[in-house]
């Protein structure tokens, strides 16, 4: 009894994973800006809700994954299809040290804004020149 239940469960999980793998992957168009105290990343991710965004910073690698809501109105037939929905995924390497605790992200009208504040050590510092002698 328990075996069957577990078997069923594992099957469901596998199906979920498979359906995820079936999604097409797209590269989101991105702008990157740098301020004195932060790196700003802006991506186009249309059709994605806030819950479907995963931002991951591992060491110096920033990975953005955004899964689009499947677009198929119930009971409708596709007559002209010019785009497909899927997953937006992209990796960037961030050479500057980032203050990991204060990363902020905002989603507005399908545009994702990520602000990566630089860590104290990475902020520019004016070096005073002392004249010798």
């Amino acid at each position: 009894m328990k075996d069957t239940y577990e078997k069923n469960l594992s099957k469901v999980n596998r199906e979920e994973m498979e359906s995820k793998q079936d999604l097409r992957t797209y590269v989101p168009t991105t702008d990157i800006y740098e301020k004195e105290d932060a790196i700003l990343v802006r991506c186009d991710v249309p059709g994605v809700t806030q819950e479907q965004i995963d931002i991951h910073l591992d060491h110096q690698e920033l990975e953005i994954t955004a899964t689009q809501k499947m677009e198929h109105p119930e009971g409708y037939e596709l007559l002209i299809g010019e785009y497909d929905t899927g997953v937006f995924r992209r990796k960037f390497s961030i050479p500057q040290l980032i203050d990991r605790d204060n990363i902020r992200a905002r989603l507005h009208n399908g545009v994702l804004d990520i602000e990566l504040p630089k860590a104290e050590q990475a902020k520019p510092r004016r070096i005073e020149i002392t004249t010798g002698g």
Binding site: L78, G81, Y83
Partner: peptide, 8 residues
């Protein structure tokens, strides 16, 4: 923009 057209 790219368009999708659906109909019933």
């Amino acid at each position: 923009p790219a368009l999708n057209v659906w109909g019933n």
